[in-house]
Simulated assay, not measured.
Amino acid sequence: MKVLAVADSDSYLKWVASLLDDLPDGCVTDLAVVRTPIAPSPAQLAAAVGDRPVPPVLSARALRRAAERDKPEVIILACTGPVVDVLAADVLAGLRPRPVFVTGLPGISVPATEKAWLYRSGCDLFVVHSEREVAEFGEIAARLGGGGAVGLARLPFLRAAAGGRTKERVVFATQAKVPREREERERILLSLAALAERRPDLEVVVKLRALEDERQTHNERHHYQRLWRELGEPGRLSFAAGPMHEQLARAEGFVTVSSTAALEAIAQDVPLLVLEDFGVSAEMINLVFEGSSVLGTLGDLEQGDFRTASPAWCAANYFHPAGRDSWVALLTALVIGPFSPARSLMDGPEHAAARRRARLRVEVRPDLLRVGYRAKRRLTRYIVRR
């Protein structure tokens, strides 16, 4: 089986590079990044793929030419929703023979959303990572139609703890989207500093998703390292990027507001806290942790009061036995065929404008696209003032 995997951002690239390891022996895999404004930096590319060759960053046209030349039987679209849609429906449409299109989500996807399904409904297999996610997206698929099968895979980076390492740090995993407000992020930094003062034996590390000058899947308005400088660095914190598992290998405790890295901490037997001070909701992307026994407060963080996840919660959420995984079997059946290609729910005229915008993201050079966005904003402000 020949497989081409295409990513558009750092988090999706990390996910699909690991997901490829699930494929049976004998599969020939290739990895590429489609050029968009959120494409990973060279350092992010190298860190995301581990021992694999660093993938090329291709324009939409170059990606199409590569697919026509290599004729993959499977194309995995590991991209944000609008990019998945435009690649499957436009850029890579009409390939002969028609490949099986696979897509998925790289982390926690509870609650399942109609929007996530809508953008990916042109793909034949949709990969998620818990029994709960399979059930929720299955219900959406039955109600809305479109799309193909929903397959289960264990999150590929949930590795077991390595023994013999000194536990000497607390790791805070940032999230680009939440909390949104500057003041909320400052409260987290000050609580981390309070813990560092109380526990001088520990290094308190803010694990960044990306450095200030690097792009990531979601724009981060208030970058933690910049906020810390603007606060005058009132305490002893360190900041780091790079692989999460390297930080967790030396962690005595872990904290986040909402991050898939919380699952990595559970897998590595690192006690943790998921902060509930800013709410527990779909908007905060932490609703899935209800009933997990790891929700806590900034006050708990300052005291170093970390918790262990409930075994029952783990079994229902992301830590199912490997034998329950279904995505590779479903994919194999699709490749053997025959199968009816998925029907996209985005094919109607009401979505034509969204597709045009997505096409611009993958066809126009990011620097030119940013110039266009700035010009549009200036023109809008000028019209509003008049």
Rank of each mutant, 00 (worst) to 15 (best):
V6Y: 07
V84D: 01
P243I: 11
R169C: 13
L118F: 07
G94R: 09
V150Q: 06
V371R: 13
L190C: 00
D269M: 04
P53K: 12
G146R: 05
A375V: 08
P338R: 12
W327K: 08
L195N: 04
P53Q: 13
S130P: 11
V86Q: 00
D85W: 13
K167E: 14
I285N: 05
A262F: 13
L301S: 04
K2Q: 10
P271T: 14
A240E: 01
S258Q: 05
D277Q: 10
A89Y: 07
F319N: 10
M244G: 07
R198I: 13
R169T: 11
D124R: 12
D10H: 14
T217I: 09
A141I: 12
S41L: 00
A89Q: 15
A249D: 15
R381T: 00
L13V: 13
P341V: 00
V294D: 00
V49E: 03
R61P: 03
L125S: 10
L19R: 09
Y12W: 08
R386N: 04
D367M: 15
T103R: 03
R198V: 10
N219S: 07
A176I: 14
A375I: 07
P55K: 09
R35Q: 15
V34H: 04
E350S: 05
V100C: 08
I383Q: 06
L334F: 14
L190R: 05
V204P: 05
E133Q: 14
A47H: 02
G279K: 06
D305K: 09
G122C: 11
D367S: 15
I188E: 06
H245T: 14
G291N: 04
G81I: 01
I285W: 05
G299L: 02
R52P: 01
S292H: 00
E350A: 08
S109R: 08
A282L: 12
S238I: 11
L202F: 12
L155M: 14
A88F: 02
R343E: 07
V74L: 05
K71R: 15
P40N: 06
R226V: 14
S310P: 00
V335Y: 10
L152S: 09
D90P: 13
I383V: 04
A88D: 02
